[in-house]
């Protein structure tokens, strides 16, 4: 029976192998060429093979060397913070900087276990004013302030 002693190394190794295989598979569509006249496929293919070898060593080693266990994975901070950024990206060119800022701040704040709605709204309004001042007026970035203004 195979015993994994270092799960972090095993997963990292598998990740590298997967990335290497993907790189080689995609690069198979590009001309390989020769060493003297490298095509666009040459370098990626080389890197992909290196990555697979490395990943394999890492994964094999994880069965012998003992390492720390995998840490837990908390979904709330990951989903809420990244979700708030995705939302910001989707709406900012439609509703403008002010509304999207307030929404991002309130939503992102909810990722913390110390979330307080009132504080988040106040902070959102203050930061919206700051963002407009610094980025639109100060640095003259081309971002609309209000809905439809862009």
């Amino acid at each position: 029976m195979v015993i994994v002693r270092s799960p972090k190394d095993l997963l990292a190794g598998l990740l590298f192998i997967a990335a290497g295989i993907a790189a080689i598979a995609i690069a198979a569509n590009y001309t390989l060429g020769t060493a003297a006249r490298m095509g666009p496929g040459y370098f990626p293919r080389m890197l992909g093979m290196l990555l697979i070898v490395l990943g394999a060593i890492l994964a094999a080693r994880s069965l012998r060397l003992t390492g720390p266990p995998l840490p837990g994975w908390k979904w709330r901070p990951v989903l809420v913070t990244l979700g708030s950024v995705v939302m910001f990206g989707l709406i900012v060119n439609r509703v403008g900087l002010v509304i999207s800022t307030i929404l991002l701040i309130v939503m992102a704040s909810a990722a913390s276990h110390e979330f307080r709605l009132r504080d988040a709204v106040i902070s959102g309004i203050a930061l919206a004013a700051l963002a407009v001042g610094v980025f639109v007026i100060g640095l003259k970035l081309q971002i609309g302030i209000w809905p439809g203004a862009h």
Partner: peptide, 19 residues
């Protein structure tokens, strides 16, 4: 407190990347 700080950091990152 960090609960006020990190959303602001996220915001500035997002505006920076968007721009």
């Amino acid at each position: 407190p960090y609960r006020l700080l990190y959303p602001a950091i996220l915001l500035f990152c997002s505006i920076g990347v968007y721009s």
